[in-house]
Simulated scan of single mutants.
Amino acid sequence: MSATTSSIAWPTGGIRSGFRFGRETSSPGRAAEGSDWSVDWVLERAAANRRAGRIGALIAYAVLCAASLAVASSFWAEGARVVMPVAWAQLMLIGGIGWAVARHASDRECIVLRGDRLTVERASGSHVERVEFQPAWVRVEPEHDDRSLIELSGQGRRIAVGRFVAPEQRRQLAEELRLALRRWHQGGPKPASM
């Protein structure tokens, strides 16, 4: 698994200053004020791998179906009546497993620091979990150690993020989140000389 930014069109007034996983944005000419300042993180499986994987899986499944039904049909024609229902059951089982895997192909975590809210949305299959924090109260800590998931907590709520980031890069993601929260406390982006 790897972290990528999504195919969402990012605002054109974006500035990248020190963020590997996130995208810092502000309106042109208003960066000094910090009023439209925000940082967005979209963490998901690599998009190129998802699309190529889906197409390859569909082709492989179609070939498997054709071959399996061709063999089953020849046995059916020779009088082995049990082979065809077994072949159909096998293909349905494999198709069901493929559907379950495809259901999680668009799993992702979105973290948005904008205005007076830090919003975390985690999608897994058809389940979406959304937690909002006031940035002033958010704590960023590893769940167990530097390579474990990152826990965001505050105001009695908590959520773990970083599933789509390699364990060795989670510490860097946590530092990025802390940096963004520090900048939020200071009123938005600082000049590029930082």
Rank of each mutant, 00 (worst) to 15 (best):
G14M: 06
W184L: 04
S126N: 09
Q155F: 05
S193L: 14
R23K: 10
L64S: 07
G22C: 05
H127I: 12
S74K: 11
E175N: 11
L91M: 15
P191Q: 09
G53F: 03
F21M: 02
R182M: 06
A70Y: 11
F21D: 05
F164R: 07
P135Y: 10
I94T: 15
I55R: 13
F21V: 12
E33C: 02
G95F: 13
V128T: 04
A174Q: 06
R183L: 15
W184C: 03
T25N: 01
I55P: 00
A31E: 08
L177N: 09
R16C: 06
D116P: 03
A66E: 10
A102Q: 10
I55G: 02
P191F: 12
G125C: 04
V131Q: 05
R171K: 08
S153R: 01
A57Q: 08
I59R: 09
G22D: 02
A77I: 12
G34V: 02
V140D: 01
E176R: 10
Q172I: 11
V112T: 10
M84E: 12
E24D: 08
I94L: 14
D107R: 11
P167W: 05
W41K: 02
A3K: 00
T12E: 10
A100H: 13
L91V: 09
L58W: 10
I159V: 15
I55M: 04
A48V: 03
W88C: 14
H104K: 11
E109P: 00
L149P: 06
H185Y: 13
E44I: 01
F164V: 04
S148Q: 05
H144W: 10
F19Y: 08
T119Q: 07
G13Y: 04
A3L: 04
T25D: 00
L177T: 06
E175H: 12
S74R: 12
G53S: 08
Q90L: 14
A32R: 06
L91R: 12
G98M: 12
H185R: 15
A31N: 05
S73V: 11
V131P: 05
V112E: 07
P85N: 10
S7W: 00
P28I: 04
G115A: 14
M1G: 05
V83A: 15
I159Y: 01
W184K: 04
V140H: 01
V82A: 15
E78L: 15
L181Q: 02
R163F: 00
A57W: 09
V140T: 07
E141H: 05
A102M: 14
